[in-house]
Nucleic acid binder design. Structure first.
Length: 641
RNA sequence: GCCGGAGUAGCUCAGGUGGUAGAGCAGCUGAUUUGUAAUCAGCUGGUCGGGGGUUCGAUUCCCUUCUCCGGCUCCA
């Protein structure tokens, strides 16, 4: 029979041969690295016989599928160790998690004993034994009904629930050593393949992710085919910790969240506030330059406004309680849109004047459940870089395309050039006619396609009033963050009777687009801190330059240089303390100030400065004008280096 | 909200089987005049997260509450 490989080459083999044998026939190296096989389009174990002509790809850890198989097998390995140590454990589910950054596996367990860090070490030690035993993974099959009966007999309720739902009349099991688990597979050949692993954490997780269900214990782990890869992965995790915006926010004195003020409420310290000011200034200028007008709206409004908008009906649980004053209820705003609608309704509008693009950095308050608060990304008060476009149906397409371009301009300015785009369709709980949802979804889709942006459909993930496009940006560590959302809305215009006067004098319904590009200023700031590791590019750095005099005698010259730069609108400070230069440099490096200008008697005499760049080190001695021009150029171009 | 863990000086942490705590850094004062990542000395600084209980006595034991951390769920 003929086996065809991915490069379209082929070889002849006897029927019944396994992928493992074929891998060995190709090369010893491949045989060693082989984890599983893809026969035609099906992932199978290496030892499954191939009986007819087929396409074959040997799967290794380098393949995405290979990693998932490897981690899935690791979950089995971990479960087998747990069953040896805690035989009373009921196993729930143990998959691999595909994620660019947080790649890992877990197993959800039901056991009375509360697992601790210490237990993780015990489990790791037991896993190491099972790896040393090099137990092969062996597949077997059973009629589904028989398996179901056994699970019910053994009171293995989680497996029974899964067995009750899988398709087909047989289910497969994988055994290694004395451990058996129902599993679709495939798996790596044997436990000996899993040479390097680490259990990361234990946490609660609801069965099937439903908070009505029982809370199980979940152990997360990572594993790799060799120790080097594991070490690299753990190093990556350590690096991420150093970039954590909560840590940097404290160390660089950017912001704080204070217990006495309240959880999820951000205090912007001067340096953080300055960065925010620059971002917001850039944002406003760019909006005005792109045909937007700025508006401001209050922080509270009559409760009835939110009832009419539908927010009360859909998000009451996540809104702060109303404030009662003079027998009237007022609501702290969770959204800006009803206000913008009221601005629109302040007068009549001609079809000639549309579209209106109204933008506001609007601070909203949402009651987030206590357990979900997290640094800057998840807070109770935050500022949306919001805008609403009111347009005619015939303008919708162009508006959306313009928005996509405008958005990418923003993201790229901050150095985000990789992103995933999603189109979210109608959710279960929503308002409006099927027809308007179809139109809105179609409009978003067309815009994406006209702009040639690849996207994934996120079924049922739209907002109650309309479908949306979401953009998740990828940061320097490969993590994705949701920022942009662009939502088409036929519903609020309906509820608030938003119209314009058409050419023929009739009143026609306007269409609204809701959009936030950076999302929340707080969250975006958090993302930026992590993206840059606290070392902001020159245009954003709160202190762009620090002058470091070597001895007190040149303090006047240092101040003179500072004044020159300040005159060019560069943010500069001078460190005139009687400290050794190494001390001042160390401090400036820790503050991640992009330019350190060291001046001593030599520089004073020559009217020069010795330039040191953050992380790059000593650059050399240049004229003040030279470095000033360089810095101004970087600011002007919003350079990222 | 749920599961688990943790709250000691501004920060990072040590300590104590119940007798009111200690270091480094930061801050302050002084000395030092220094050439590319930490000069030296002295001083200040804590109701040991809050409240309640047990006790002669609680930072330590118990209860409760708040906040944070790792997750789950949720996120207009």
């Amino acid at each position: 029979m003929k086996i065809t490989f991915p490069d379209n080459s082929s070889r002849e083999y006897q029927p019944g041969i396994t992928a493992a044998d074929i891998a060995k026939d190709i090369s010893q190296g491949l045989a060693k690295r082989a984890l599983a096989a893809k026969v035609n389009d099906e992932l199978v174990d290496l030892n499954r016989p191939i009986n007819q002509d087929a396409g074959l790809r040997i799967i290794t850890f380098d393949d995405e599928e290979g990693k998932l198989i490897f981690w899935h097998s690791s979950a089995h390995l971990m479960a087998s160790a747990i069953m040896r140590l805690f035989p009373q454990t009921k196993l729930a589910i143990g998959p691999a998690v595909p994620d660019d950054f947080a790649a890992r596996f877990y197993y959800d367990l039901d056991l009375d004993h509360k697992l601790t860090e210490k237990d993780l070490e015990l489990i790791e030690a037991e896993m190491a034994k099972i790896v040393a035993e090099d137990r092969p993974f062996v597949r077997s099959e059973k009629p589904r009904q028989a398996a179901l009966a056994e699970f019910n007999r053994d009171n293995d309720l989680y497996k029974a629930e899964i067995a009750g739902e899988v398709e087909g009349e047989t289910v497969s099991f994988y055994t290694h050593g004395d451990f058996i688990d129902m599993c679709r597979g495939p798996h790596v050949p044997s436990t000996g393949k899993i040479k390097a692993f680490k259990l990361l954490s234990v946490a609660g997780a609801y069965w099937r992710g439903d908070e009505k269900n029982k809370m199980l214990q979940r152990i997360y782990g990572v594993s790799f085919p060799d120790k080097q890869l594991l070490a690299e992965h753990l190093e990556k995790i350590e690096q991420a910790k150093l970039r954590d915006h909560r840590l940097l926010g404290k160390n660089l004195d950017l912001f704080s969240i204070n217990d006495e003020v309240g959880p999820g409420l951000v205090l912007w310290h001067p340096k953080g506030a300055l960065i925010r000011h620059i971002i917001e200034g850039f944002w406003k200028d760019a909006h005005i330059a792109n045909g937007y007008e700025l508006v401001y709206t209050p922080h509270i409004a009559r409760l009835e406004l939110w009832d009419r908008s539908g927010h009360l009906g859909f998000y009451k649980e996540n809104m702060f309680k109303p404030i009662e004053i003079e027998n009237q209820n007022y609501q702290l705003k969770p959204m800006n849109c009803p206000f913008h609608i009221q601005i629109y309704k302040a007068r009549k509008h001609s079809y000639r004047d549309l579209p209106y693009r109204w933008a506001e950095l609007g601070t909203v308050y949402r009651f987030e459940r206590s357990g979900v608060l997290h640094g800057l990304p998840r807070v109770r008060g935050f500022t949306q870089d919001d805008a609403h476009v009111f347009c005619r149906p015939d303008q919708l397409q162009d508006e959306l395309i313009g928005l996509l371009d405008f958005n990418l301009f923003f993201l790229e300015t901050f150095g985000f050039d990789k992103y995933n785009t999603y189109l979210s369709t109608r959710p279960e709980h929503s308002v409006g006619s099927d027809e308007s949802w179809a139109r809105a979804t179609e409009a978003l889709k067309n815009a994406l396609e006209k702009r040639g942006l690849p996207y994934q459909i996120d079924p049922g993930e739209g907002v109650f009033y309309g479908p949306k496009i979401d953009v998740k940006i990828k940061d320097n560590l490969g993590r994705f963050w949701q920022c942009t959302t662009i939502q088409v809305d036929f519903n609020l215009p309906e509820k608030f009777d938003v119209t314009y006067t058409a050419e023929d004098g009739s009143e026609k319904r306007a269409i609204m687009i809701h959009r936030a590009l950076l999302g929340s200023i707080e969250r975006f700031f958090g993302i930026l801190i992590e993206q840059y590791g606290g070392a902001f590019p020159v245009w954003l750095a709160p202190i762009q330059v620090i002058i470091l005099p070597v001895v007190d005698e040149v303090n006047d010259y240092a101040e003179h240089v500072a004044q020159m730069l300040r005159g060019a609108a560069i943010r500069v400070e001078t460190d005139k303390r009687s400290q050794k230069i190494g001390y001042k440099i160390r401090e400036a490096e820790n503050l991640k100030i992009p330019y350190m200008l060291i001046v001593g008697k030599k520089e004073e005499a020559e009217h020069t400065v010795s330039v040191r760049r953050h992380k790059l080190g000593d650059i050399g001695v240049v004229a003040v004008e030279t470095v000033s021009a360089e810095i101004l150029q970087k600011i002007k171009t919003k350079s990222l280096d």
